[in-house]
Design a protein around this nucleic acid. Structure first.
Lengths: 265, 265
DNA sequence: ACGGCCCTCGTGTCAGACAAGTTGACGAAG
DNA sequence: CTTCGTCAACTTGTCTGACACGAGGGCCGT
């Protein structure tokens, strides 16, 4: 989590990988909808000008991600969304760069809020001194940036965001739970988008963000798990302010009474 | 989540599926370790007495799960655990029935606690009347069982566990966040094991469990998100009592000071 | 109108072959 | 003896052609 270097060596994708990517995109952007039949392997082979085994491997990949079901004798169909492997990196990536994540973005932000506030609580009980020092360093960096520059340019926002991300990574690392870490890693790319947006749109964004981080650090330092969870909750509800109205806001007397008595059955 | 029927029709697994299952097991139980080279495709084809394309599709599946890396020219290697797709159903399944989940079980329980307590908070703000009624029904069933039987037999524990699971499913459904639902679905099989254990080992297990559920329901009914999170937290810390000593217990003054100042770097 | 048979289509599997990249060993040069 | 370049063997990636088997739809007879 703390080390975000790019992959070791990026080998050029194989034919079947390219094709499966293309197919994933077709499905994610709804060109082929759940229940619809996929083109036959032979047809796909013609479309992409490759042999059938290559197509088969590509389709196999889709099967593993849960996007399609193929049975002998019957044409391969797109699976119901319920069966999709939402946490597969390929699917997430496809959703991001087809822009088809609007529908799941809110759920992702909500998931992040749940995970990270829980993580903050765990970190409060487990963090070591060196980890605390690292967290302080990141916050120190934020403070410096805030003091040294008058108005935030694009570059500054980038650097600030970097420190932000590193801080959150440190908190996750301190939980000693790599499942939590991995989960956030998976949805990370999306988070970065949202983070930038909230920083750009508010003139005093960085200052408020810094305040939130300071509160979190303080709670974690003192080992107060409940306070850590609470401050992370608040910080993340602020981060998601761009569409916060649609999120739950259970900490401020949720105005959800209207929804509450509806939806029978 | 609420409907747990088995899949529509279980078609017999294909050859490549059987082979990939076998390979996943070999890797998960450590017979081939990260960094080691896999047998060549031809060798695997001989071992399993199938053709090379079948082997290739099986290996392709492993690649998607992130268990192996294959590049042209070089033999396929088992990937570092860091790259494994921890949330892939096949990997989880393999970890369960090879018994190799000890290392991740604690992390899973912790993850569940984080997710479900967050979910309870969300549910408190979004639950509908019919959903509340359903939750009450499940708790009512538990109460009946507790009242009608003197000592819990294996069968009773099963039924009690069923109601337990349905209740938790209802809470998740009420969040309207299918990412949370899916996450719990994925780790569900493991949870069932743990749940049974904690119920069997404590003589007054069911009674205490019932109490916990009642508290959760009450908080959700009154729309008190903080109380819902708290009661779910406590309930799940009780559920995990079999190894709770190893889990965090941030709600009771964590005795983790010893760990706190160690682990430099 | 209904039910059973057959034919067609599509996936599952096999065999053999060539292309392309990697690795390691061997040999030549310094 | 060390070092570097070349080559050969191995492994994965891709292609071709073919057959088996299950599913679905249309046709035909009742």
């Amino acid at each position: 989590m703390a080390n975000d270097e790019p992959a070791v060596t990026l080998r050029s994708p194989t034919l079947s990988e390219r094709i499966s990517d293309a197919l994933v995109r077709r499905i994610v952007r709804g060109e082929i909808q759940p229940g619809d039949a996929m083109p036959s392997e032979e047809e796909l082979a013609t479309q992409f000008d490759v042999s059938r085994p290559v197509v088969r491997e590509a389709v196999k990949e889709l099967t593993v991600i849960g996007l399609v079901e193929s049975r002998q004798g019957r044409s391969t169909r797109v699976a119901p969304e319920r069966d999709w492997n939402d946490f597969d990196p390929r699917l997430i990536a496809a959703r991001i760069d087809t822009g088809a994540f609007d529908t799941v973005l809110l759920e992702l932000l909500e998931l992040r809020r749940v995970i990270e506030s829980g993580a903050a609580g765990l970190a409060a009980g487990r963090r070591t001194s060196p980890e605390l020092a690292q967290m302080e360093a990141e916050i120190g960096a934020m403070e410096e940036m805030l003091a040294s520059v008058d108005s935030f340019e694009a570059d500054d926002i980038d650097h600030f965001t970097d420190a932000d991300i590193r801080f959150h990574g440190l908190v996750l690392d301190a939980t000693r739970n790599h499942l939590l870490i991995r989960l956030i890693e998976l949805i990370g790319p999306l988070l970065r988008v949202g983070r930038r947006m909230s920083l750009e749109r508010r003139p005093d964004g960085p200052a408020e963000s810094l305040h939130g981080h300071q509160a979190i650090l303080e709670a974690i330092r003192s080992g107060d798990a409940a306070a850590a969870r609470q401050s992370m909750r608040e910080h993340l509800s602020w981060t998601a302010n761009l569409r916060l109205d649609e999120l739950d806001d259970d900490d401020r007397g949720a105005p959800l009474a209207s929804r509450r008595e509806s939806t029978p059955g």
